[in-house]
Design a protein around this nucleic acid. Structure first.
Lengths: 123, 123, 123, 123
DNA sequence: GTGGTCTAGACCACC
DNA sequence: GTGGTCTAGACCACG
């Protein structure tokens, strides 16, 4: 349901944040649904609960989650929009990668073919 | 001539390395040309000279630069190939970013528009 | 009749307790009156009945409520005094909040305008 | 320079955040100044560095601090405005306290006299 | 059971 | 030296 790449330089808590937003963006979780509990998600991902807690805390501050004391968290009402036109961190990451690639001398043509290639592999 | 993103999680010295390789990949600097001096580059980028020095040191070890005792560095003969190798790393990084973005729920259409947007901003 | 702020760090059962005391302090409920039933209040506040039950339990222990086996609770005779005692607690809390706000750099003028603002919003 | 109340129900990291904003609001620290290092502040406050780090992290996300990798943090340019018209958390806390006080039955007149009283004591 | 805070200590990368 | 991430484990309050 949610996958991590522990080798990635991207912080685990960021991957968790992106993953949850992805579940909403793809319609697997919907506003009003209960989010998995911090502890259960931590166990499932084999990660320290604090790490998951940090992701949840930030998502709550951002208004993507609502935490109910002693009764778990749920996907906030605005989460769908948040996940959709938001995805801001992911977009920022991609844009950053694009920018660096350009600065490193990658031509736009190369970028285009790389995108096409990835698209093909996925299908 | 060379731009940094101080907020990026990518190390500054890595950005400098990639930037110099990019200048060669784009033909702005050529093998045999003088590289900017560490001090002047540091001043221009408003960065600690140590940071630039580290980038130069590593580029020299990699054979991309040649240092002339007391007389700065110059772009090595094999620099063009090095710049190309750098490009494959960059491609790999971009591809990875794309994968994560997709996992996070970003649609291909979003990717396309993001690319268009970056292209536009650059122009 | 009784309003909660689910986002507040203040426990819900405490808000309920304070709210009931407030209703008495303001003369809306009087000693001898029937208190709302736990279930109806829980439904109205969209809160777990356990939470309301806890508030009632504590209020009963404090002598603010009297429970009639199988017939709900009623406002105790001494409730008015209890409500007044509650007020001093509230005052202390407010004073503390003021102190912290001042330490944090809030000017007295800001405090004044904040009070005016709250007053306005309430009306 | 910065005082904590470990007995307060207000989280330490929140007190630290408020304290730093207060130092800027009062002009003791200015935009561009170096903020104390996480470790030194932790030592001075006799608190775990992680706790200070959390405060710093949030302040950075909010744009009040800028962190320079390996070179400490500094007060961001927008910090003064942030601290001044912001102070948002403190104001929110005060407003919350006011709201609860009102719901608990405290009259506006009581609020006013309480404010006057605090003001007098401080002077 | 839940989320939240805090401590302690390790490790990393950067300057 | 700096900030950042992660783990481990304790404790608290709430539902």
């Amino acid at each position: 349901m949610l996958q991590l790449d522990l080798r990635s330089p991207v912080p685990i808590y960021d991957q968790i944040k992106a993953g949850l937003r992805g579940l909403v963006a793809r319609g697997i979780l919907r506003p009003g649904d209960a989010a998995p509990s911090i502890r259960s998600l931590a166990a499932q991902l084999k990660v320290n609960p604090n790490t998951v807690a940090r992701a949840f805390r930030e998502l709550t501050l951002e208004g993507f989650l609502e935490s109910r004391r002693g009764d778990g968290s749920l996907i906030a009402e605005g989460a769908a929009r948040h996940a959709k036109d938001g995805l801001s961190e992911v977009r920022a990451g991609l844009k950053d990668a694009l920018l660096r690639a350009r600065r490193a001398g990658l031509a736009w043509g190369d970028v285009d073919s790389l995108v096409r290639e990835s698209r093909k592999e996925e299908a």
